[in-house]
Design a binder for these strands. Structure first.
Length: 268
DNA sequence: AAAGCGATCAACCGCCCAACT
DNA sequence: GAGTTGGGCGGTTGATCGCTT
């Protein structure tokens, strides 16, 4: 079976960098009509572009909620940590970083973070802690990460098992919380389908077209992101949680999941 | 000043998969 | 159930920028 080309008129289509005029056309069309059908969109918008190209341009650069500019240290740390758990699942990682796209994260990883880690691995710090001094011990906490094996063979996991500073950043974090992150994400994917279905039933006349900024403008009466980062930054938060009895831990975990639920779900 | 070179990043390519027919 | 389609994803490319020589 030979699949149909995504664009029929390859010869006539523009390629390469987008011009401001093309951007304008795309934005105006999506604002007016949405993007229910990417394949048909270029024609309707008067663009000589492949539908995929339009989609990519919109998702990565033109969406109103795309965050531009340098990555913060917290974001970098989160990427490193999530990459350790999920491997090259850029879209999955991106879903945990509001406003960042998979393409951007992929780039920042390939050009910066990967090298940073490689550099650290080739110049291991003298004051290594026992927990990060060997592949087995460095994963003493991470070995319980069920999806760690995904990284095997990609060249990164090997490095991850070597002593490195970045692992130290998270040595004190309990992997269960990161597992929760993934579980909640997977869970929410399912829940969001249901929620979206319900929401769509309740919505009338908006063609199911979501405004990516709505969760900021309309629905949220609190800011998730700072609290999300504080959970990551404040390791005592985890330690305290873990020192409580199991039931209380579960309650706190649930509230944390609720934050993630809001965040991840609304990113959909 | 300009050539060389590495770094960066936007965009493309091709495969996969879920949804639809 | 099989075929088809569109959207999504990860890998890769290539244009551009900026620094060095």
């Amino acid at each position: 079976m030979r699949r149909r080309e995504c664009c029929e008129k390859d010869g006539e289509l523009n390629k390469g960098l987008w011009t401001p005029e093309e951007d304008k056309k795309l934005i105006q069309h999506i604002e007016k009509h949405g993007h229910a059908n990417w394949r048909a969109l270029p024609k309707l918008a008067g663009l000589s572009r492949c539908g995929k190209s339009c989609r990519l341009r919109w998702i990565n650069y033109l969406r109103p909620d795309v965050k531009r500019g340098n990555f913060t240290k917290e974001e970098e740390n989160t990427i490193i940590k999530l990459h350790q758990s999920w491997g090259n699942k850029w879209s999955k990682i991106a879903s945990c970083l509001p406003g960042r796209t998979d393409n951007e994260i992929k780039n920042i990883w390939n050009i910066y973070l990967k090298k940073q880690i490689q550099t650290k691995n080739t110049n291991p710090p003298n004051d290594q802690t026992p927990t990060s001094s060997s592949s087995s011990s460095s994963s003493s906490s991470m070995n319980s990460c069920a999806f760690n094996n995904q990284n095997e063979g990609d060249g990164i996991s090997k490095q991850n098992n070597e002593p490195s500073n970045y692992i130290d950043l998270f040595d004190d974090l309990e992997v269960e919380h990161w597992l929760m992150l993934e579980e909640s994400h997977d869970l929410l994917n399912n829940e969001n389908i249901e929620n979206n279905n319900n929401n769509n039933k309740n919505k009338e006349g908006d063609d199911n077209e979501e405004d990516p900024t709505k969760f900021i403008d309309d629905e949220m009466d609190y800011q998730i992101e700072p609290e999300f980062w504080s959970l990551i930054d404040d390791q005592t938060c985890f330690n305290e949680t873990l020192s409580q009895d199991e039931s209380r831990t579960m309650v706190e975990n649930k509230s944390w999941l609720a934050y993630l639920e809001e965040e991840l779900g609304l990113k959909e």
